[in-house]
Amino acid sequence: MDTFRPGTCIKLRPGQTYAGKQGFNYFNGIAKETTGSQAICMHLLTVPPGGRAKAHKHATHETAIYVVSGSAIMYWGENLEHCMETSAGDLIYIPADVPHLPINTGTEPTQAVIARTDPHEQESVVLLPHLDALVP
C-alpha cells in the first residue's frame, strides 16, 4: 500500500489486528504499510494474563513503550539475564538490537502503546528461539 500522498495527514482508529512474529496480536497503527510513514511505527498492544512473547530483538531500531494499564515483566539482555517490572504509567526504552521477552504475569490484561524507529510493522523483528528456554 504505497499510494500515500506526501504531506497528507492521516487519522486511524485501531480496529483490525495482525499477528506479530513475537507471538502477540497487535492493533494496526501508524506504519509505512498503513500511512506511508517514513521513520516511525506506533501501535497498540493488549497482552492477556499469562501472555508471553517469543524472545526477540529489533535489528537497528529503538523501541519506546508506554504502559497504559496492567503490569508485566520484561526479561532483557544478551541472555535475558535482566528482569524489569513494569506497570501502568511506566515509560520503557529498549535500545536497538537488545534481546527482550515480555510476559504478563498479572491477572488483568496489560495495554501498551509501542513506538519504534522502524516504519514497518514487523520488518526489524528478529526472533531468538535459542533464548526462549532461558525464561521459566
Rank of each mutant, 00 (worst) to 15 (best):
V113Y: 03
G106R: 00
P109A: 03
D2Q: 15
D90N: 11
N25Y: 09
N104V: 00
K57T: 08
W76Y: 15
A55T: 02
I30W: 02
A72V: 08
A39L: 15
E78T: 10
V113P: 00
Y93H: 12
T34V: 08
A112L: 05
P119I: 04
H120N: 11
G20F: 06
A133L: 07
P109H: 02
L12H: 03
Q22M: 13
A115F: 03
T46A: 15
P95K: 07
F27I: 07
A53S: 15
H58M: 10
V47F: 03
L134E: 04
H58D: 07
T63F: 08
H130I: 03
D90T: 07
P48S: 14
K32W: 11
G36L: 10
Y66A: 05
K32V: 01
R13G: 06
M84V: 08
L91A: 13
V135R: 02
W76M: 05
D90F: 05
T110C: 06
Q38R: 14
I114P: 00
T34W: 07
F27M: 14
F27C: 06
F24C: 02
T86A: 08
T110S: 03
K54F: 11
N104K: 01
I94V: 10
A59K: 15
D132F: 04
E33T: 02
A64C: 14
A64F: 15
N104G: 02
E81D: 14
M42E: 10
I103G: 00
A39G: 15
Q22A: 14
T107N: 10
T35K: 00
I103K: 05
G29I: 03
H100A: 00
M74E: 12
A112F: 02
A112C: 04
H82K: 14
L101G: 00
S37F: 12
G89P: 03
C83H: 12
T107H: 07
H130Q: 15
C83G: 05
I65L: 12
K32T: 01
V126E: 12
D2H: 13
P95C: 08
L134K: 13
K11L: 14
H43A: 07
E81Y: 13
H82Y: 13
R5F: 09
C83P: 02
G15R: 10
E62R: 08
A64D: 09
I103L: 13
G77Y: 11
C83Y: 09
K32L: 11
P95H: 11
Q22G: 12
A72M: 14
H56R: 06
I92S: 02
L80W: 06
T117V: 04
Y18S: 06
